[in-house]
Every structure is written in C-alpha cells, then in structure tokens.
C-alpha cells in the first residue's frame, strides 16, 4: 500500500505542474491584462487613471516581465501560501476568497448530504424492487431530474415563489443580515433560505446517483454468490448489506474525487441566478475582468482539490476493493 501511495503522489506532481501551465496560459491568452482593461474603462468614461499606482502594481507583480518569469513568480507565491493580489477587489486573494468560502462550504455540504441521504435509499429500493410501479415512478422522476438544468429549475422556482407566494427566494439570508455579524437569528435565516439552493443544485446529482446505484446494485444482485447465499437461506436484508451493497458503493467512493472541488467552487450559474454569495460568481467575474491572480489562484486551488480528491478516492478504492480490473477484457 505504501508503494501505491508513493506512486500516486509522484503522478500528482507532474499533473499539478501541467495544470498550472495550462491555467496560466489560458488566463494570459486574451490580449492585454487587467490594467489595460481598467485604463481603457476609465478613459472611456472620461476619468483619469492613477498611472503611478498602476505602474507600481505592474512592477510589483511582474507584469512588465516575460511570461515565463511571471509564471515562476506566480507558482513560487502559491508554494509559499501567497495566492497573489486581486486588482479588482484591491485585496489579497486569500481575503477575497475567505469571505465567500464559508457560504460555499455551507451550501455545498448541505447539497452533498441531501444528495446522499435521498439517493441512497431510493437507489437501493429501486434495485431491490426492479420493474415495480414504484421503481418505474422513481425512474421517471430520476430522468426528469437528470434532464432539467439546475439554473432552469432555479428560474422556475424563483418565478413560482414570486407569482404565487409574493416572496423572493434568492440569496442565502434575509437582506437585513447580509453585512451583519453572525448571530442566532442570522443562522436561522440562512437555514430557512438554504433548502432552496440545496434542492436546486442537488437534484441533478441525486438523480444521477440513483441511476448509478440502481444499475450497480442490479449487476451485483444477479451474480452467482448472491444466488448461492439465497439458496443457503441467508436473510435477504443481511445478504444485501453483506456484499452486494458494499460492491455497489464503489461509484460513491469514486465521487469523492469530484466532491472536493465542488465544495469550493459551488454551482456558479445557479449562484448567479439565485444571487448566492458563494465563490462561483466571484470566479466568473474574475475571469471576465482578467483579474489574473484571483482567477488563476482560485482555479489552481480547485485543481489541487480535484487531484487530492481523486487521490483519496483511488486510495479508498484500493483499500476496499483491490481486485484486478483490467479494461477491454485483458488480464495479466
């Protein structure tokens, strides 16, 4: 196992280096930089730009140097925990991200819990009651959930709540708490608003997980060892939990890889539609305004979490089910 961990870590390093190069290149692909866009905006509105300050920032963050030097400067900062400076917010990136990170964590963890709590029993029920009317109904609802884009569901809910109940369900709390420090009433307000984004963001993932769990469990239930155990008179529930369900859980474990970055990024488009103060809309703004350090460092942070997540899920799979699994039917 130690050998496996070491090999996996050694694969992660070049992966992260490659991702950092791709992120840096893509962010620098559009012509100009944040400052040229900023100066152009000021000139178009007839205002004068503080060129001295802009030149100082350009020199400090190496915008006047070749691209490869800028890349080294950026990566060196990341290695030392410095994510750079957000020119749009006039704050270090750590501070800009930190303000929204808590809200993103709350929404994302609630969504993940919702997905698992709803998908798990429904998936098991659907598989163990295959082709019953309830299985057909749940399958229909699952496909409906898969086919509906989350932002569309958000728009429909916003419209219905406004037209029929006369309330606004956007945001994560009542407007009066937005800039207030945390208090019990603010927590209650967040709790009251939370279920809507959770249902909106979690529906597609829940439907997808139900389908996968059902399919995997059906595969396992038809295997010979299950038939043998049934023939030996093992109780159905004990039989279900002993092996088939454990084997069918592999996709849940594999999903850990995508969970970590999801927790941080939030659902960007749904957050924009529902005015959620999460990191998704912030990333979109940063990309639009070429706020290089904010966008690049945040994307790199998400990439790091993705790589760590895949590493954790691979490790969990290696511990739980270290079978030979060769694709294309080849064995060695």
């Amino acid at each position: 196992m130690l050998g496996y961990v070491v090999r996996r870590i050694l694969i992660m390093l070049p992966t992260l280096i490659a991702i950092s190069i791709v992120i840096f290149t893509i962010i620098n692909l559009p012509p100009g930089d944040y400052f040229s866009t900023y100066i152009a905006e000021l000139q178009s509105s007839g205002e004068a730009a503080d060129l001295a300050k802009i030149n100082f920032l350009k020199a400090q963050y190496g915008f006047d140097r070749p691209l490869w030097e800028q890349y080294i400067f950026w990566v060196g900062g990341l290695l030392h925990g410095d994510m750079g400076y957000s020119f749009a917010y006039n704050l270090p990136v750590n501070q800009v991200v930190g303000d929204r990170l808590l809200m993103t964590f709350i929404v994302s963890f609630a969504t993940i819990l919702f997905t698992y709590i709803v998908a798990f029993p429904i998936g098991v029920y659907s598989a163990t009651h295959q082709y019953s009317w309830s299985d057909h109904l749940l399958t229909f609802l699952g496909f409906l959930g898969l086919a509906t884009p989350s932002f569309l569901l958000a728009l429909v809910l916003l419209y219905l709540a406004n037209v029929y109940f006369g309330i606004s369900i956007g945001g994560l709390m009542d407007p009066k708490y937005v800039d207030q420090p945390w208090s019990f009433s603010k927590v209650v307000s967040v709790g009251a608003h939370l279920w809507i984004p959770v249902v909106v963001i979690g529906t597609a993932g829940t439907a997808s997980m139900i389908r996968r769990l059902r399919a995997n469990l059906l595969d396992e239930l038809q295997k010979q060892y299950v038939v043998t155990a049934r023939a030996k008179g093992l109780r159905p529930l004990k039989l279900l939990f002993k092996y088939p369900l454990r084997m069918a859980l592999n996709p849940f474990i594999s999903d850990i890889g995508s969970l970590l970055p999801h927790v941080i990024s939030g659902a960007a488009i749904v957050s924009v539609v529902m005015s959620l103060p999460t990191t998704g809309p912030m990333l979109l703004d940063a990309l639009r305004s070429q706020d290089m350090y904010l966008a690049g460092s945040f994307l790199m942070f998400m990439a790091f979490l993705t790589v760590i997540g895949v590493f954790v899920s691979d490790l969990a799979l290696a511990v739980l089910d270290p079978r030979i699994r060769l694709q294309a039917g080849r064995t060695q």
Binding site: M1, G3, A318, P322, R323, I324
Partner: peptide, 16 residues
C-alpha cells in the same frame, strides 16, 4: 492478495 495499479485501465500493476 491485493492488486494495485496507478493506471486508469488497470494495467501495469503489481500484487501484494
């Protein structure tokens, strides 16, 4: 007896 591979297709692994 466990099998480990760092490749997605499961090849070039080793047993423990």
């Amino acid at each position: 007896l466990a099998y480990y591979s760092t490749r997605r297709d499961g090849r070039d692994g080793w047993m423990q």
